[in-house]
């Protein structure tokens, strides 16, 4: 995405010193990125940061309230909620990023190809994509899991499949816009090959909305993964996973709200961060609102 500064596509040229912040999505985006980086650091450093083992069962601390050594309290098996939340980010962020990258890897070429070539190719590809889109997201994921069996990796795959048509559609729409631009027609007139036009002109200029979409989808991925785990279809116990922890805590909401509240906050913060990034990027990359 480097050769053609995205700002050129937008109507206004901005001052260079503001460019980086703009690319990251302005003040909102910056806040989002900061939180995401902190969360990624937390996930990577979980073994160092977590005060206890996330799977250590303690019969003396069943549903025990928060204390200095267990700041988030303990769950129904006496496990430390803080440690479990920290470890849970590994699964949640892994799935969020992994599923979106996978969806991009498949959806982006489809969208670019369909949008750039157009005609019958576009029609056929897009109807196939519509077919996938017509399934409600959770239903599609649940059907896949029913076939493949539950697990974190299957959840990742299921979410990626849900996202492929969304990615492909967004990319296609922005490719359609870019395809008609004067610089593309100029390149054609110059005799440039299709491949080099796509690489050099179409892709860099069309990718903005896809990136916006990607960040928003990451937020959704966390929610979908949590929902799947809540339903027992995602990660399997005793894996520390935010949705699974929510499902557990739900049983004890009145006596031990901390079992529910902290994983819930954990989900909320990560979703907020990705949404901030998404909103910021949208303002910078997608002023026309293709991803809306």
């Amino acid at each position: 995405m480097s050769t053609h500064p995205a700002a050129e596509v937008g109507a206004t040229a901005r001052a260079p010193r503001r460019r980086l912040r703009t690319r990251l999505g302005g003040r909102e985006g910056l806040a989002g990125w900061t939180i995401v980086f902190i969360l990624i650091a937390v996930a990577i450093l979980a073994p160092v940061l977590a005060p206890h083992s996330p799977e250590a069962i303690d019969g003396n601390r069943i549903l025990a309230a928060p204390t200095a050594t267990h700041p988030f309290g303990s769950d129904d098996l006496g496990r430390d909620v803080l440690s479990r939340v920290l470890y849970a980010y590994r699964v949640s962020l892994g799935i969020a990023v992994g599923s979106v990258l996978l969806a991009m890897a498949v959806g982006l070429p489809i969208g670019v190809f369909a949008g750039y070539v157009g005609g019958w190719t576009d029609l056929v590809l897009m109807r196939l994509i519509d077919l996938l889109l017509s399934f409600p997201a959770l239903l599609l994921a649940i059907s896949l899991i029913a076939i493949l069996g539950p697990g974190s990796l299957v959840a990742l795959l299921a979410i990626a499949i849900i996202y492929i048509p969304i990615m492909a559609r967004v990319v296609r729409s922005s490719v359609l816009v870019v395809r008609g631009q004067a610089y593309v027609r100029g390149a054609r007139a110059r005799g440039a090959s299709h491949l080099s036009i796509v690489r050099g002109h179409v892709l860099p200029n069309a990718i903005g909305p896809a990136l916006v979409q990607a960040s928003v989808l990451m937020a959704f991925a966390i929610v979908i993964e949590a929902a799947l785990s809540f339903l027992g279809l995602g990660s399997q116990p005793p894996t520390p996973e935010l949705g699974l922890m929510l499902a557990d805590g739900n049983n004890y909401l009145t006596q031990a709200p901390w079992v529910e509240i902290f994983p819930g906050l954990g989900i909320a913060i990560s979703v907020l961060a990705f949404n901030l990034i998404g909103d910021g990027l949208r303002r910078s990359f997608d002023p026309n609102g293709i991803t809306r």
Binding site: E55, I57, D76, L77, P237, P238, A247, N251
Partner: peptide, 17 residues
């Protein structure tokens, strides 16, 4: 394991340990 029955589900985790 049967998540519908919280006690049986928890038994599984304790048993694993």
């Amino acid at each position: 394991s049967l998540p519908q029955y919280p006690e049986l589900q928890k038994t599984a985790v304790v048993l694993r340990d």
